[in-house]
Write a protein that binds this DNA or RNA. Structure first.
Lengths: 159, 159
DNA sequence: AATAAATCGTTGACTTTTTCAACTATCCAT
DNA sequence: ATGGATAGTTGAAAAAGTCAACGATTTATT
C-alpha cells in the first residue's frame, strides 16, 4: 500500500469561481476554510484513532474546568446524545472517565485519565501542525488577528 | 402574565469552557462560528425554501461565470453526486437550468432562470442580514479584515 | 483512423451524522 | 411532598457524506 504518487498538495485547480459574489459571504468562507482544515486535521488525528469530534471532547476533558456533558454539548454545538456516543468510545478506550458532579449528581463530569492526557498531548501537537498547514497562506500575526476576530465574534471583547 | 417569555436571544450561558485550550484552535473557532451562523442563515433562507447548500448553488448559477457541475462541486467542497441532487431540486422548481457545455458536451453548465434570479436577489438580502446578526460583535472594518484573512488563507494574496 | 485512457454527470448502495422524542434519575420550588 | 424542570441515555428516523460503477464524451496514444 501507500502508493502516494499523485498527491500534489500545492496544485490549485484554477479557482475561477472565486469571482462569484458568494465568495464575499462570511458563512461561505468559514465553511470552506473549515472544510479544508478538517481534512488535514482528521488526517493528522487518525494516527491516534481520533477525529475532530473526539479530539475536541478529549481536549475539554484535559482542561481543569471539570466540564459536564451538557456543557460540552453546548460548547461544541453538538446534541447531548452525540456527546454520549463520543464519551462512550473514549471511556472504553480508557482515555476519559465519567464522575458524578459533586453539586449535581445528575450531571457527569468528564475528565481525562493519564493515558488520555498522554494521547492528548501528542494529538495536540499533530493538530497544531495541521492547523499550520491549513493556514500556511497567513503570517503568524495574521493568524493571531484571525483568531482574535473569531473569538470576538463568538464571545465579544471579553474573549 | 409574561408566559411567552422563553425566547431570550441574547442570554449567553456563561461560556466557562472558553478558557479551555481548544478555544485557541483555529479549526474549532471556525467550526463554532460557522455553526452559529448556519442556524441564522438557514432560518433566514427557509422563507425561500432554500438551505445554505441550495443557496450557494443558486448563487453560483446567478454568476456570469457559467460554472459546470464539477466546478461547483469542487468550489463548494461537495461530492459531485450531491450537486446533482441539489440541482435536480432547483431545476424542478424552475430556478436553474442545465445546458450542455459548448466546448465539452459532457459537462453541464448551470445557469439561473429569471425566476431563479428573482429568488436569489431576495434570498441574498436575507442572507446578508443573517450574516450581520452572526457577526454583530464585530465592527464593519473588523468584518472586512476577517473576510480578507479568510480569503487570503484560502486563495493566497491574489484573492 | 483506431484504440485506449481519462473525465463529466448520474445512479445506487452504504455509512456516518444529525435530529428528535421519549425515558430514568435527580434537583429545585413551592 | 408534590410537581415541574434538568442531565444523561436510548433508539428511531431523516439528512448528509462516501464511494464504486456506468454511459456518454473527450483526450491521448499508436
Amino acid at each position: 500500500m501507500a502508493t502516494e504518487v499523485d498527491d500534489k498538495p500545492g496544485s490549485e485547480p484554477a479557482e475561477k469561481l472565486m469571482a462569484a459574489t458568494i465568495s464575499q459571504d462570511a458563512g461561505f468562507l468559514l465553511a470552506k476554510l473549515h472544510a479544508g482544515g478538517s481534512v488535514l486535521n482528521n488526517h493528522a488525528l487518525a494516527a491516534f484513532d481520533l477525529k475532530e469530534r473526539s479530539y475536541s471532547v478529549l481536549a475539554l476533558a484535559n482542561s481543569e474546568l471539570e466540564p459536564t456533558q451538557r456543557e460540552m454539548a453546548e460548547f461544541l454545538s453538538l446534541d447531548p446524545s452525540q456527546i454520549v456516543a463520543l464519551i462512550d468510545e473514549l471511556e472504553q478506550r480508557g482515555l476519559v472517565i465519567r464522575a458524578p458532579g459533586k453539586l449535581d449528581r445528575r450531571a457527569k463530569i468528564v475528565s481525562s485519565t493519564p493515558e488520555g492526557a498522554a494521547v492528548f498531548r501528542r494529538a495536540e501537537a499533530a493538530a497544531r501542525d495541521a492547523e499550520s498547514a491549513a493556514l500556511a497562506g497567513l503570517s503568524a500575526t495574521e493568524i493571531a488577528t484571525l483568531k482574535g476576530l473569531l473569538r470576538k465574534a463568538l464571545w465579544g471583547p471579553a474573549a
